[in-house]
Simulated scan of single mutants.
Amino acid sequence: MGRNNVFFALVLIAVGVREIAPSKDAMKYITSGFVKVLEECKHDLNMNDQILADLYHYWKLDYALLSRDTGCAIICMSKKLDLLDTNGRMHHGNAQEFAMKHGAGDDVASKIVSIIHECEKKFERDDDECLRVLDVAKCFRSGIHELDWQPNVEVIVSEVLTEI
């Protein structure tokens, strides 16, 4: 698996969070697409529903994200969403475009990409890619919380269930 893949999947969840009405629409579309890709990855990687629980609790700062499989799933989703470059790193252009396509303004999309890039720099280890991605994901989550851009999980779940 490529490096820094986890960040991109998380970007998808966070896009457009700043503006209230646009972020609700963006989160709805992003999460719907995200869940569809997650199901493919769960099947591809033969993973259980613990991944769903980890992703549901992801935005809670005190949630440790201990499941290595969740890191692997984020990598898989990032690949399926074409958010990685040939080296397995976040493709800045694709990530920016994806965020904007799902309702984020240029400034919000740029900030999201910037946070992910900074988190990638902090976690350069080469041992277990899935665990490394979890570290980056937690760093990204903290960055989004610092901006107070974290989405309301209950709203996301409600809107996703409406779509299904």
Results as ranks from 00 to 15, higher is better:
residue 2 G to A: 10
residue 11 V to D: 10
residue 13 I to P: 00
residue 13 I to R: 07
residue 17 V to N: 12
residue 18 R to V: 08
residue 18 R to D: 12
residue 19 E to C: 11
residue 20 I to C: 12
residue 24 K to S: 10
residue 24 K to H: 12
residue 29 Y to K: 15
residue 29 Y to S: 14
residue 29 Y to H: 14
residue 30 I to F: 07
residue 32 S to E: 10
residue 35 V to Y: 00
residue 37 V to G: 00
residue 40 E to C: 09
residue 42 K to I: 14
residue 42 K to H: 06
residue 42 K to C: 10
residue 45 L to P: 06
residue 49 D to K: 13
residue 50 Q to C: 08
residue 50 Q to V: 07
residue 52 L to W: 02
residue 58 Y to A: 09
residue 61 L to Q: 15
residue 64 A to P: 11
residue 67 S to N: 14
residue 70 T to C: 11
residue 73 A to Y: 02
residue 80 K to Q: 14
residue 82 D to S: 14
residue 84 L to H: 09
residue 87 N to E: 15
residue 89 R to V: 01
residue 89 R to D: 10
residue 90 M to L: 15
residue 91 H to A: 15
residue 93 G to C: 04
residue 93 G to Q: 14
residue 93 G to W: 06
residue 95 A to K: 05
residue 100 M to C: 04
residue 101 K to P: 00
residue 102 H to S: 05
residue 105 G to F: 07
residue 108 V to D: 13
residue 110 S to C: 07
residue 114 S to W: 03
residue 115 I to D: 08
residue 117 H to E: 14
residue 117 H to D: 14
residue 117 H to P: 00
residue 124 E to N: 12
residue 128 D to N: 15
residue 128 D to M: 06
residue 130 C to E: 04
residue 136 V to P: 01
residue 136 V to G: 15
residue 136 V to Q: 13
residue 136 V to R: 05
residue 137 A to E: 02
residue 137 A to D: 01
residue 145 H to R: 08
residue 146 E to L: 12
residue 147 L to I: 02
residue 148 D to S: 14
residue 148 D to C: 05
residue 150 Q to G: 09
residue 151 P to Y: 09
residue 152 N to R: 08
residue 152 N to P: 01
residue 161 L to A: 00
